[in-house]
C-alpha cells in the first residue's frame, strides 16, 4: 500500500508488453471478409465451358460448394490445384472456379496442362465480380452453403494442412448446419 506508486511503471510496462507481444503475431495481410453469412452476390457472367450462355447464381449447385478464385498467371493456384484435383476425384464437394482477370485461352490451356478440378468456371475477366466478393488477389477460396450464403473464406494458397485443419471442418460444419 505505502509504496504502491513504485509499481506503477512496472504495471504500465506489463500492460504495454502484453499488447506489443500480441502485435508481433497479428496477421495484417489477410483481411477479414465482411461477406461471411451474406448471400453470394448476384452475377451474370460467361463461363469457360458453355459458350455464349451467361451464368447466374441459379446455375450454381444446390448443395454446399467451394468457390475458388484462380488465374493462369497465379503460381499459388498451381500449388493448390492437386488438392482440388484429389477432392474432385474423391467427390468430396463441388468446386466452382472463378477465373479472375485472366484470358480465356490462357485459362483453358492451364486447365488442359494442370488438370481441371472445377465443375464450372465463371469468367470474371475485368475483375468486377471479384470486387463484389471483396477479392483482392487470387487465390481466394469461399465456402458457400446450400442456400447460396457465404460461410467461410480462406485467403491465399490452400495446402494439405489448411485443407485438413480448416476447409474440411468448415465443410462438415456447413453440412451439419444445413441438415438441422
Amino acid at each position: 500500500m505505502k509504496n504502491f506508486k513504485l509499481y506503477i511503471p512496472v504495471a504500465v510496462f506489463a500492460v504495454l508488453a502484453v499488447f506489443m507481444w500480441q502485435g508481433l503475431f497479428l496477421d495484417t495481410r489477410t483481411l477479414p471478409s465482411v461477406l461471411i453469412d451474406r448471400p453470394l452476390p448476384e452475377f451474370e457472367l460467361r463461363s469457360l465451358e458453355m459458350g455464349d450462355r451467361l451464368l447466374t447464381t441459379a446455375d450454381l449447385p444446390d448443395e454446399p460448394f467451394i468457390l475458388n478464385i484462380w488465374g493462369s498467371y497465379c503460381l499459388p493456384c498451381l500449388q493448390e490445384n492437386p488438392i482440388f484435383m484429389s477432392a474432385k476425384e474423391r467427390g468430396i464437394i463441388p468446386i466452382i472456379g472463378l477465373n479472375y482477370k485472366d484470358r480465356d485461352d490462357a485459362a483453358r490451356n492451364w486447365l488442359d496442362i494442370n488438370g481441371n478440378p472445377f465443375d464450372l468456371n465463371i469468367i470474371d475477366d475485368n475483375g468486377r465480380y471479384g470486387i463484389d466478393l471483396g477479392v483482392y488477389g487470387a487465390p481466394e477460396t469461399f465456402l458457400v452453403d446450400a442456400n447460396g450464403v457465404i460461410r467461410f473464406k480462406h485467403i491465399g494458397v490452400i495446402n494439405y494442412r489448411i485443407w485438413e485443419d480448416e476447409i474440411m471442418p468448415a465443410i462438415a460444419a456447413i453440412r451439419a448446419g444445413g441438415n438441422s
Binding site: L31, K101, G127, I131, V135, Y136, G137
Partner: peptide
Amino acid sequence: CPMCQNANLTSSPGGVAADL
C-alpha cells in the same frame, strides 16, 4: 488498397487498386 496494405488507391500499383 486491400492488396498493398500501406498504399492508398492512388499510389498503389496493384491490380485490384486499378479496378477499384
